[in-house]
């Protein structure tokens, strides 16, 4: 394999029902930086049925080129059909880097493609950089339970691939004046050759935790002490209409269901206000919430790492502080004929 044959940074543009996933825009933002650093074009690649029109949006978010494979068999994501397309494109155009969102489909696709291309794949990356001289992708991720970062390199194989956590990278503001090149490719796919069929897609919004979309999140950590004290977290959240989240410890202790875990192995969230109460701030947790707009930390230990990411911190006992907060909020409330508003 001649490594120099491979040039360019590619991003998998994941779409569902003709709508591009947010993580793909984020990756175009991160990919743009890598491409500029390596002095190569940034390309997006799109697969689906009737999705050509999404190419413009891809360019607006930073791509120089968009590779499109439009085919009825690609209507719903399936590993076997999508990987065929991606492998064809990668073998034809030889990009040096391919990034995928670490969504269920993105991870599924990347794992299959990496196997067939016999190349390296780094999972759930949270930091991306490039060594220009060696033309190496430096993909970093929390390792060993999340208290340390490891940078993974793929020195002798191309393309270098990584899946990237949603909501960690920043998307560029779209510029619909940008111009770019759209390259359409055709591959042969036959429905009768497919071994899997998507029978039904159920958008279950209720099942999905409202964490990802919540404006305000109250997250409790193991520092709450026990399940009974943890009820304070629920009470505060209920008082201010926030969603409840927890750290890995809390979920493993059974105080909260798995869906409410925030962090590397749980949800990544970016609310307007994030309360971290009794949360120490292990890296594996912080990667899941550090992009929140306003972070309020309450912790007994003045040296807890959570204070490093917090906008405001209170060093003190949550059992003492949280009830006061609840009381303050309750006193703000006036009720007029069942209508609740601020005094």
């Amino acid at each position: 394999m001649n490594l120099d044959d491979y040039r360019g940074v590619w991003v998998f543009i994941e779409q569902n029902d003709g709508k591009i996933e947010g993580v793909s825009f984020e990756l175009l933002g991160a990919g743009r930086k890598l491409a500029d650093k390596l002095d190569v074009p940034l390309a997006g690649f799109l697969l689906g049925d009737g999705i050509k029109s999404l190419a413009n949006q891809t360019i607006a978010y930073g791509a120089d080129q968009v590779y499109v494979i439009d085919h009825p068999v690609l209507k719903h994501y399936r590993t076997e059909s999508y990987m065929k397309g991606v492998i064809y494109l990668a073998q034809t155009y030889k990009p040096e880097i391919i990034l995928y969102g670490a969504t269920p489909n993105g991870k599924d696709l990347a794992s299959a493609v990496a196997t067939d291309l016999s190349t390296g794949l780094t999972a759930d990356t949270t930091m991306l950089d490039a060594d220009v001289e060696k033309r190496l992708l430096e993909a970093s991720r929390p390792a060993f339970g999340g208290n340390i970062m490891a940078t993974i390199l793929c020195k002798k194989h191309r393309p270098q691939m990584a899946t990237v956590r949603p909501k960690v990278m920043k998307a560029l503001a779209p510029d619909y004046e940008r111009s770019g090149q759209v390259i359409e490719e055709k591959i042969s796919l036959k429905e009768e050759e497919m071994r899997t069929k998507v029978l039904q897609i159920v958008n279950d919004v209720t099942k999905k935790t409202n964490l990802a979309d919540a404006h305000v999140i109250v997250c409790g950590g193991k520092g709450m002490g026990d399940l009974q004290n943890f009820q304070l977290i629920h009470e505060l959240a209920e008082t201010i209409g926030a969603s409840v989240g927890g750290t890995r410890d809390v979920v493993e202790a059974g105080w909260l269901p798995h869906e409410q875990q925030i962090g590397q192995t749980g949800e990544t969230v970016t609310p307007k206000i994030y309360f971290a109460i009794g949360v120490s701030g292990a890296i594996q947790h912080v990667v899941g919430m550090k992009n929140s707009e306003l972070i309020i930390a309450i912790n007994k230990d003045p040296n807890a790492p959570i204070f490093d990411v917090a906008t405001y911190g209170i060093v003190g006992d949550a059992m003492e502080i949280v009830p006061q907060l609840i009381a303050q909020f309750k006193s703000l409330r006036t009720e007029k004929g069942g209508e609740v508003s601020y005094a």
Binding site: S118, G120, E138, I148, T151, K155, I283, D308, Q328
Partner: peptide
């Protein structure tokens, strides 16, 4: 194995925000 671990590091601690001061009720206010 095409991938190797390049380096391990503890990410640089960000500056951190402001710690509030005063009694508990002052801080809450």
């Amino acid at each position: 194995s095409p991938t190797i671990v390049g380096k391990m590091f503890t990410p640089p601690r960000p500056e951190g925000g402001k710690k509030l001061e005063g009694s508990v009720s002052e801080q809450v206010s």
